[in-house]
């Protein structure tokens, strides 16, 4: 029986909490880094089929800057931090002071890419360490990899493990936003957490709500 069928509403709530705690820490880290107010949305936990997953990342032609980490340890999985290219450009210009850096026009400067990779590393790292503390599971991130490309082509990498056991994915999606002024906010990026199929059992067990057989 597919593991998806054994997942109950309370399990989805647990995954939401994982997204909440993880992205909350990442938002704090980003806020300190930029010295700006960063907000986050309530995480969305979606069970989607592979053909509809495109909608999740803003349509098939949406281009993003993405940092990808493979999570190793007791509950392996994949993690992505995706930013719209314009937003990534703005952040890197701010961090490096190099106004000529633009992700819309390759080739990109090595320094800018390196800064973006490091930014992703810090944010994904704080997400992951909060996740690890919360669950008491031993988790280590791989070295982050960076890609500027079609969102769906990038996300499909995170589906490979899942694709061997079914045609559905559980995606824990948390959006973080930058506060511009009292009334307006601007999307900074999305965290996508995709645990491997065997990891769900371990996460739920660790948090005291095991799955029924």
């Amino acid at each position: 029986m597919s593991f998806i069928n054994r997942i109950q509403p309370e399990h989805l709530d647990i995954l939401k909490e994982v997204g909440n705690i993880g992205a909350g820490h990442a938002a704090t880290a980003l806020s300190k880094l930029l010295n700006k107010t960063i907000d986050m949305k309530v995480p969305a936990v979606r069970v989607t089929s592979f053909d509809t997953i495109t909608e999740l990342v803003g349509g098939s032609d949406n281009v993003v800057a993405a940092i990808f980490l493979r999570i190793e340890g007791e509950a392996p999985g994949n993690m992505f931090f995706m930013l719209p290219v314009n937003e990534a450009t703005r952040l890197i210009q701010y961090l490096t002071g190099d106004q000529s850096f633009d992700l819309n026009h390759p080739p990109y400067s090595e320094l800018g890419l390196s800064a973006l990779q490091e930014l992703g590393n810090i944010l994904a790292g704080s997400y992951l360490s909060a996740f690890s503390d919360f669950t008491k599971l031993n988790l280590q991130p791989s070295v982050p990899a960076l890609s500027i490309d079609m969102a769906i082509a990038i996300l499909s990498y995170g589906l490979l493990e899942l694709s061997q056991v079914g045609d559905y994915a559980i995606v824990i999606d948390t959006e973080i936003l930058e506060k511009i002024d009292e009334n307006s906010k601007k999307t900074t990026g999305h965290f996508f957490l995709l645990p491997d199929p065997d990891s769900y059992e371990k996460i739920f067990q660790a948090l005291g709500v095991p799955m029924n057989e």
Binding site: T54, S60, D61, D149, M150, A151, I152, A153, I154, S156, Y157, L160
Partner: peptide
């Protein structure tokens, strides 16, 4: 024809 056929976002696929 006149249809065309398309797939988007091929990465490792």
């Amino acid at each position: 024809p006149p249809q065309k056929i398309r797939t988007s976002g091929l990465g490792s696929c």
